[in-house]
Design a protein around this nucleic acid. Structure first.
Lengths: 148, 148
DNA sequence: TATTGTTATACTCTATAACTATA
DNA sequence: TATAGTTATAGAGTATAACAATA
């Protein structure tokens, strides 16, 4: 007798496990979840202003200052002057930062493959579709509830 | 062409959305994620020592002191003397705390039902089984990686 | 001697508000 | 006047280490 609550509980459990697994990997490299999230964003967007990062991470500009301070100190990123706007700075990945993100992509790929290694193609297709449906429902809930 | 990485990304996205939704509900009541987690644990275990809660939440005893201070101040829980061990205290839910947990169960049930409201019985069964399989795989990964 | 909870101290993430330098 | 980033200040979550009371 499966029901929605079971699904919800499982999703919560999975979320927790993924978080734990990721912090276990990042800790040694001197990275935290928040800092990694910032680097990840820079990795995908390319050199970005702190304002852009604040918007992308849905976090205050002040917070970004702190995170950039930390990853700069750790050698993962660098502040560079914006070529045309002298008020702004561009956050860029260093070689070390680029390497860290590449490692992360690789390790995430391994985990991802392992998660569904039992599934045949049809099953994976169905499961993916179901996850997409649940995600869409969640987005609906979020949009309904916070009309701002 | 679905693959494991898509699944992984979706799971991350779902985790994020659920977190956001939950904090949106808890904020108004004066509760945070960490405090709610503690109350949730007390709700399920019954009156518990802080040591037991620290173990259950996988958090330091010192941390539990702070969280209990906060939920006690907020009127959600109470410290009571342990009947046989005078070193220990039992954390118990107040009426307000019990009500808050009941509300949470109800609201979580609504969300959960909505998430899979499109699914017919067979689909829900399959989806649940797939989620269980993924969860089992994640547990494997966690156990492998942290031999401690 | 071991355990329970607390005080002391410190680090990270987060926020708002005020300020500086530029647009 | 508005925007980019910083300083100032504050609160929450987390940790370790030292300590008191009790087992």
């Amino acid at each position: 007798m499966p029901d929605g609550v079971h699904v919800f509980d499982r999703l919560l459990e999975i979320a927790l496990l993924i978080q734990q697994d990721m912090s276990r990997e990042l800790g040694p490299a001197g990275l935290t979840a928040a800092r990694t999230h910032l680097l990840w964003e820079v990795h995908h967007r390319g050199p970005s202003t702190q304002q852009a990062l604040a918007a992308a991470l849905q976090v205050s500009p002040r917070n970004v200052t702190g995170l950039v301070d930390a990853v700069e100190k750790g050698g993962f990123a660098r502040r560079e002057p914006h070529p045309t706007d002298r008020r702004a700075t561009l956050v860029t990945l260093t070689e070390q930062g680029t390497r860290a993100m590449a490692d992360m992509v690789a390790s995430r790929g391994q985990i991802a493959a392992h998660l569904v290694s039992d599934f045949d193609t049809a099953q994976l297709q169905r499961f993916t579709a179901d996850l997409d449906a649940v995600t869409a429902r969640l987005h609906e809930l979020m949009d309904d509830g916070s009309p701002t």
